[in-house]
Design a protein around this nucleic acid. Structure first.
Lengths: 298, 298
DNA sequence: CGGAATCATCAGAAGAACTGACGACTACTG
DNA sequence: CAGTAGTCGTCAGTTCTTCTGATGATTCCG
């Protein structure tokens, strides 16, 4: 009978490409991974790996096993969830990936409320960019992800994930306070010549910001680039840049920046997602519900 | 993550009832089973076993895991079958359970033919009564079973098994040779007062034989009872008893017994069965095909 | 109230898996 | 076209898990 732990290694290899990356991801030594996969190959009786360059490639037969490994993990996860659901008290561990502004605005209250409702649930939080967070949740590194969705940007790859919207918030133009601003800027068009701060290339937020500027008829000069929205705020408040920021970043802190509505009144959607196989897990559901309560209150 | 090997132990426990039986069945020591199940309980985080008298009972939560274990094994088996199917050459191991007369009449030729067609397949044969053979095949102790089906006897429990008929053979009254027989018996009615040899109580064959006699208007005196049809033959040939025997028992040996058709011309069906999850296994399929070829030739 | 059956626990033995070092090979880089 | 870095396979030794066998507690049965 094929060993499940080895199948998981193979599945991870299919996802990551090299033995070294698998070892890194699952905290083994590369040698252990190599040995275990050799054993799997012997168990299976057919070649699974082919050396190709300095890496390895999976044979079609290995792909069959990868698919099976996915099914097996799903079944296991479903069983664990049912098990947990049958326990009267909600308990367990929930690993959550959250992007920065949600981490700041939502998580403190959510964690406090969760501690009150379900003290036996241990919530672990890791900050991640939405794109990688979704991927890692799919790959079972997290049980729940809080991610965002910008208008006119296709929702990134949600195969096998169950998505539920948490809240939406308006995206507005953040301008320096009047006493810091040299010129009198009052709207998007007035900001066309100013230096911008945006998130790095490749993020949904950056794409949205650039598109908005182009729709207004200019190409923004992106002088500053950071994924840290708090840093963006400081740049705006100190008069060094303008930015497009969702409202959620302002919760819980006073600001001197001036916020101006955009013509199209765009809104960002904040949502949670988890693997469908884990849907019946009461601990994850409980935290998801708590998040929704907190988000509704903001 | 729950350990699959431990889930299998739990599943076996659900099927067999006591730790000792599980240990016996899977060739572990009872202590190993106890320890592994304790670990599983710790992994699961919920109680799985309850001491009850001197044995143990499964909690409802354990039943959930048992169901999951079944699913997992099915998935694994399907994957292995697909894997084997993708290999160009047919190879592997096939464990077959066969009842006595098929073992004598069919298997020698089938094994020879199989060695010719697929030398890389290792066929292991165990002789078993049809009832237990079917059950053990369901329980994954065999990959293929050759069993029989008597008329008017419900096909025993084939849940999850794929059945294919191999052949049928006439069931006839076997009478002693004339020189051994004191009285001139020529048909079923004439045998009403003679001593009978039948299979043990609880077998389909016994049930059929008794019903046949009763339909003819008498209760047979079963003086001899044995599951060994070759022994029954000897008792008939030596003039000690009469019997109802399927034709297959005569293949490959000359007989002095006289065979008389029964009024209803009943036939016994010989069939093969395997778990549906293993249907794509080429080694099992190959042997099944070989058996069908051989059976057709008899 | 023995005697047999069953499971839990423990210490030690057996076995499986992992680590770290080495060597072979391949791609990239200047 | 060498030098360097990245990747995998293998091997010996260690670590960790799992199994065995002995012992004790509990229950059922006669």
């Amino acid at each position: 009978m094929l060993d499940l732990r080895r199948l998981v290694l193979l599945r991870e290899l299919a996802a990551r490409g090299t033995l070294a990356a698998v070892a890194e991801a699952l905290s083994y030594s590369p040698s252990a991974v190599s040995q275990q996969l050799s054993l799997l190959e012997k168990e299976a009786g057919v070649p699974l790996l082919r050396r190709s360059g300095r890496g390895v490639r999976l044979t079609p037969q290995a792909e069959v096993l990868v698919a099976a490994a996915g099914e097996l993990l799903d079944t296991l996860e479903r069983a664990e969830a049912e098990l947990a659901a049958s326990a009267t008290e909600v308990r367990g561990r929930v690993r959550v990936a959250v992007f920065q502004s949600a981490a700041l605005a939502l998580m403190p209250a959510a964690l406090r409320e969760m501690g009150r409702r379900h003290p036996q649930v241990r919530v672990e939080m890791v900050q991640r960019e939405p794109e990688s967070a979704l991927h890692e949740t799919w790959a079972r590194e997290f049980d729940l992800v809080v991610a965002e969705h910008y208008p006119a940007h296709a929702a990134p790859w949600l195969m096998g994930l169950d998505r539920r919207d948490l809240t939406t918030d308006a995206i507005r133009l953040a301008l320096p306070p009047r006493d810091e601003a040299p010129t009198a800027v009052e709207d998007l068009d007035g900001a066309r010549a100013l230096p911008w701060v945006m998130e790095p290339r490749g993020t949904a937020s950056r794409h949205f910001a650039e598109q908005t500027c182009r729709a207004a008829g200019f190409e923004p000069e992106v002088r500053y680039e950071t994924a840290d929205l708090q840093a963006q705020i400081r740049l705006v408040e100190s008069g060094n840049a303008v930015a497009l920021l969702p409202d959620l970043v302002w919760t819980g802190r006073p600001t001197t920046a001036r916020l101006v509505d955009l013509p199209a009144h765009p809104r960002r959607t904040v949502f949670t997602a988890q693997r469908v196989a884990g849907l019946r897990s009461p601990a994850v559901s409980a935290f998801r519900d708590t998040l929704e309560t907190v988000a509704a209150a903001v």
